[in-house]
Design a protein around this nucleic acid. Structure first.
Length: 464
RNA sequence: UCCUCGAUAGCUCAAUGGUAGAGCAUCCGGCUGUUAACCGGAGGGUUGUAGGUUCGAGUCCUACUCGGGGAGCCA
């Protein structure tokens, strides 16, 4: 008898109709009546459950099967029967139902609506629910779509280091990496910790960005990208921040900010189109139960041009809007969340690139514009999520970059390798960082980052 | 870190300062095609923690812990 999975049966129902098959999975619901019953079985290979029909007269262990609880693992053999008049296109008429693994009476996942807060407390069980099964399958497919996009374009995938000695990446608080005993680290005569005795012989941290190393590879391979974990020790308590998250950072040489934005727009459209095409059951679920109108909104993103406007223009629009904001809009200050939301959700109702921010509010490596006041930076704002992408053209002029680092009091010695990139065949280049979880949120409509990470790490929370 | 709301049965929620309840889940029974099935019955509680006010606290007060929403920081 052929062993099959539900995905095969759904995709090739005709081939399996009236055939005897063996399958296995977990019970989502079990409803018994006097002489027959129905099990909704999910085998993990497809979003939908498959209905197993079992009857007293054809099953030796009918009484036992009728008692099998939610979560129970089963192996079933039976016949595939098409049911065009039923709610499901086909079902399995069981000849044999064998328990592989029992599920105890206190199984927390019930066939009812649970709050996401509760399910976070049972993160090891929540992928068995419809919502999280859909989220994490889409997460997997999005990761694949991103690789597919870049690989098809000939980008080289570079693994930048997770541990770094640089504290000049400029993207926030870092987690220290050490093998010292925190109770009694080696100290020098003045009582300060002697990091030269630590594992790497110096202070080290978990990376907050792979960008600087990606730039080195871009100046060898031309087009590269990173896709890996990133760590920020910020005390951020929001639905959009995690201490451990994944980031995609493409870096392209012989390219300016326009090329960078084109790449970002093409990538976002490509991966959304891929999900709409290849995760139809999941997207249908999100569209009905998570975020009504999601699918039309995403289709619109794929089909329409993203909005472009400069920071200066954005400030004008916000001031002229007459809208009352909690924080005033003034040129030179960063846009507040309320300003960004107003632009992307109210004014344009689609993704918006904001470009050319004041130099004072952006990172040291961003390329100075000719006006001397702004830098060639861009943020991509999207409805519901806010900042999805942050990028820039990099300062390729060694003298300008060094001067900027001096202004900011940075240690040039520590980043001498980064300055080398400008000395030896340095060319204009650009890149961006895409928060992968924010992309998953945007595509699924799920509004809390804790619900798109399998086992989230956030402030005061590191379970599982 | 700041503002704000909350914590009662396994889950979702009720309960005027006066004997802590319902639906779902679990267990038992009924039902010949169910779709989060339906119908009947049973068991299930240190009301987040520690103090305080009161004859009496789930309810009022204080602190703490944890969680939601918003803000800052950012992806």
């Amino acid at each position: 008898m052929e062993k099959v999975v539900v995905r095969q049966l759904v995709r090739d129902t005709k081939r399996y109709a009236d055939q005897d098959v063996e399958l296995s999975g977990w019970i989502r619901t079990n409803r018994d009546q006097k002489s027959f019953g129905f099990i909704a079985l999910n085998d993990g290979t497809h979003f939908n459950t498959i209905q197993i029909v079992y009857e007293k007269e054809s099953l030796q262990n009918f009484e036992q099967v009728a008692r099998f609880r939610v979560g129970c693992a089963l192996r079933i053999s039976g016949k595939v029967v098409e049911t065009p008049q039923g709610k499901q296109p086909f079902e399995i008429k069981a000849a044999e139902v064998v328990m592989e693994g029992d599920s105890l009476e206190d199984y927390p996942i019930q066939p009812k609506r649970h709050t996401r807060e509760f399910l976070r407390e049972v993160a090891h069980l929540r992928p068995r629910t419809n919502l999280f099964a859909a989220v994490f399958r889409v997460r997997s497919m999005l990761a694949w779509a991103i690789h597919k996009f870049f690989q098809e374009k000939g980008f080289v995938y570079v693994h930048t280091p997770i541990i770094t000695a640089s504290d000049a990446e400029g993207a926030g608080e870092m987690f220290r990496v050490t093998t010292f005993d925190p109770q009694s680290p080696p100290v020098v005569e003045t009582g300060e910790v002697n990091f030269s005795e630590d594992f790497f012989g110096r202070r080290t941290n978990l990376t907050v960005s792979g960008q600087l190393e990606a730039e080195a590879f871009a100046l060898a391979f031309r087009d590269v990208y990173t896709f890996g974990p990133t760590f920020r020790a910020e005390n951020s308590n929001t639905a959009r921040h995690a201490a451990e998250f994944w980031m995609i950072e493409p870096e392209i040489a012989f390219a300016d900010l326009q090329d960078d934005m084109k790449l970002a727009e093409d990538m976002v459209k490509y991966v959304i189109a891929y999900i709409l095409e290849n995760a139809q059951e999941e997207m249908e679920f999100f569209n009905v139960f998570v975020d009504k109108g999601l699918r039309d909104r995403l289709k619109n993103v794929v089909e329409s041009e993203f909005m472009h406007l400069s920071y200066t223009k954005a400030v004008e629009i916000l001031i002229e809007s007459g809208q009352q904001f909690d924080y005033p809009v003034t040129w030179g200050n960063d846009l507040q969340t309320e300003h960004e939301r107003y632009l992307t959700e109210k004014v344009y109702a689609k993704p918006v690139f904001v470009t050319d921010y004041p130099q004072g509010i952006k990172a040291f490596y961003m390329r100075q514009n000719d006006d001397g006041k702004t830098v060639a930076a861009m943020d991509l704002l999207v409805p519901g999520v806010g900042e999805l992408i942050g990028g820039s053209q990099r300062e390729e002029r060694a003298d300008v970059l060094e001067q900027r680092m001096e202004e900011l009091g940075m240690d040039k010695k520590e980043l001498c390798w980064y300055l080398d990139l400008r000395k030896y065949g340095g060319v204009k280049h650009a890149g961006f960082g895409l928060g992968f979880e924010r992309l998953v949120m945007y595509v699924t409509g799920v509004s809390n980052i804790r619900d798109v990470v399998p086992f989230p790490r956030t402030v005061k929370s590191c379970e599982f």
